[in-house]
């Protein structure tokens, strides 16, 4: 027994066991079950094998494609907004403009939204973007001379509201990632560059960005996943899973509607499996393209 406990060969396995067990119980087993269920029709206490029928229905399902389009569109636009803007803000904070106290306050206030509950934020944004002409966004619109907009009824305006939540909530988090990455870059590089006469912008382009690559790869990867898996923001903004013309419906929202609201768990499992395949396909090809899997050459 003692020999077993002190065994050097066994120790590493023992230390990673908690992770392996959680991975198995909460990830591999449910994943396997989802695959199985996606080939079944599941009703109370009965599951009938129906082959690939669920996938066939999915393929022909206009609403699924719409949900997928919505999710992809949202994901791409969050990447467009949530990489450059936080990057620029992080560079600003990392520079020697402004006093440290002001920058500290700025950092904190940018980060606070990430600590709030999406549920509360969603409700507040719903009120901000309400239809009545006394709602904040409509007052802003009126100030600029156009007038009450029915924000959550139009496809594009609804998307604007969703992106506003994403921007408000995640700018601070991404900014922190980038800031941490920037502060790990040795100052010698910048000194050397400035001696050579490189402008600030060129330093940013040729020193900061290349050195930040691991951080950028990480942020893009989680943003791709986060964008495609978005659900709660839309659920709260539209006060439920039903938005006009399904304009706010995401893939996860559709999975939820089918599985939980309409009790078609087999079909919902098929949606989940397809989402997993898409997320993995995008992220793995991105990671391969960005060279993450290559052995570090430098």
């Amino acid at each position: 027994m003692k020999q077993l406990l002190y065994s050097k060969r066994l120790a590493p396995y023992f230390f990673i066991l908690p992770f392996l067990v959680t991975l198995a119980v909460f990830w591999v087993v449910p994943l396997g079950r989802s695959f199985v269920m996606s080939t079944q029709e599941v009703l109370y206490g009965q599951a009938t094998f129906i082959g690939l029928d669920n996938y066939e229905r999915l393929w022909q399902d206009r609403i699924f494609w719409q949900a997928l389009f919505n999710s992809l569109r949202y994901m791409v636009l969050t990447l467009v907004l949530l990489i450059p803007i936080p990057l620029a803000l992080a560079a600003l904070i990392n520079s020697n403009i402004g006093s440290a106290r002001i920058k500290g306050f700025f950092k904190a206030s940018m980060f606070v939204p990430a600590l709030t509950s999406v549920v509360v934020a969603g409700i507040v944004f719903r009120l901000i973007f309400a239809e009545s002409d006394t709602a904040i966004m409509n007052q802003v619109a009126e100030f600029f001379g156009f007038g009450p907009v029915r924000w959550l009824r139009g496809d594009v305006t609804g998307l604007v509201a969703l992106l506003a939540i994403a921007l408000w909530r995640w700018t601070g988090v991404n900014m922190m990632y980038f800031l941490a990455g920037m502060q790990a870059i040795p100052t010698e590089y910048y000194e050397a560059a400035s001696i050579d006469g490189a402008s600030r912008f060129r330093q940013f382009l040729h020193i900061t960005i290349p050195n930040l690559r691991p951080t950028i790869v990480y942020v893009v990867t989680i943003s791709v996943y986060g964008g495609l898996a978005m659900f709660l923001e839309s659920f709260m903004l539209y006060a439920g899973n039903n938005s006009p013309n399904n304009q706010g419906l995401t893939v996860v929202g559709y999975l939820y509607r089918k599985g939980i609201e309409e009790n078609d768990l087999g079909f919902a499992s098929a949606v989940g499996v397809v989402l997993l395949v898409i997320v993995m396909a995008i992220n793995i090809s991105y990671l391969v393209a960005s060279g993450t899997f290559r052995k570090e050459a430098a």
Partner: peptide, 10 residues
């Protein structure tokens, strides 16, 4: 109707 689907309603 969701809760009386199938032959074995809960």
């Amino acid at each position: 109707a969701n809760f009386v689907k199938g032959g074995n309603p809960p």
